[in-house]
Amino acid sequence: MLRIPCPHCGERDYTEFRYGGDASKTRPAHDERDVRAWHDHVFVFTNPRGPHREYWQHVQGCRQWLILERDTATNAVGTARLARDGTPA
């Protein structure tokens, strides 16, 4: 059972969360019309075997979208922060 450390609610089972995929990608600007930019954002993945920065929403808790560090090779869970605070540099 993945256990996700929600900054608001503490460590919880991953089943309380909704997965939101790769959080390392930068969403194009809202008025960006370049198809390639949106294509790469929506459809192309790095899909690393190793450290992965990803979105999870605590749907059964505080409803906040989090950015979680997790290793896809081991499922080892690192830290989580609120997505609204932006990604760390």
């Binding site: 809202h30 979208w65 609204r84």
Partner: peptide
Amino acid sequence: EFLLQTAW
């Protein structure tokens, strides 16, 4: 919620 918390 995703849009509000991550994009905007």
